[in-house]
Design a protein around this nucleic acid. Structure first.
Lengths: 99, 99
DNA sequence: CCGCTATATCGTCATTCGACGATTGCCGAA
DNA sequence: TTCGGCAATCGTCGAATGACGATATAGCGG
């Protein structure tokens, strides 16, 4: 029996891998650090100015971070106010610390 | 001068991104968990048996983890004994916790 | 009402990743 | 010394990433 050693996708592994993938790019790490510094304050296009990448590229990185639940963006008039998502960050820290 | 806002590659960002990239795959996370369970004990081809992937694929994942400094392998006769690299793991935890 | 500025999205292109099978290289055991 | 199992490497293929410019879109400020 035991047709297979049980694929056991293990949700925790997938979750950590997904979070890690969001972190797996210097530009995205930098965005997190940037937002962390301006704790309450939130940034908009300043992120584009800080990273040295095209606006569309930065937008894509922000999308990835948002999809991973590490940041969130609130529409504030014509601009968007990004800030860290404590919950997501905490989840990441917890999973990594458990290694 | 300040021709530009200084590309400031920021070594820490690159380092964290590189470590995160090594974690950015469920199979690699699983390998770390596997090695963590068998603290002192080390595994060889058992890893191939546990993951449900071809031997060459597993070998590649192990190579990535080793390159990132998260594991190390000691040749033991015809087989290789893998174990966690505490230092690398600690480095990762430290960088993530600092976020 | 018009145009500006800040974002998001689309399409494209080059590069990297992930997975496999096949091959090669290495010991240790028979 | 020949056999057999373990591990690394090579070559290939398809899918995903990352970067960019060109477009949309949405409100504010004049």
């Amino acid at each position: 029996m035991s047709r297979r050693a049980a694929p056991r996708p293990d949700a925790a592994d997938e979750e950590l891998a997904a979070l890690a993938k969001a972190l797996a790019h210097p530009a995205r790490v930098r965005v997190l650090r940037l937002l962390a510094r301006r704790g309450d304050g939130c940034i908009g296009c300043d992120i584009v100015a800080d990273l040295e990448l095209a606006q569309s590229t930065v937008s894509e990185h922000l999308r990835v971070l948002k999809a991973a639940g590490l940041i969130e963006g609130a529409v504030d008039g014509p601009r968007v106010c990004y800030r860290l998502r404590r919950a997501g960050l905490a989840r990441l820290k917890g999973l990594v610390a458990a290694l």
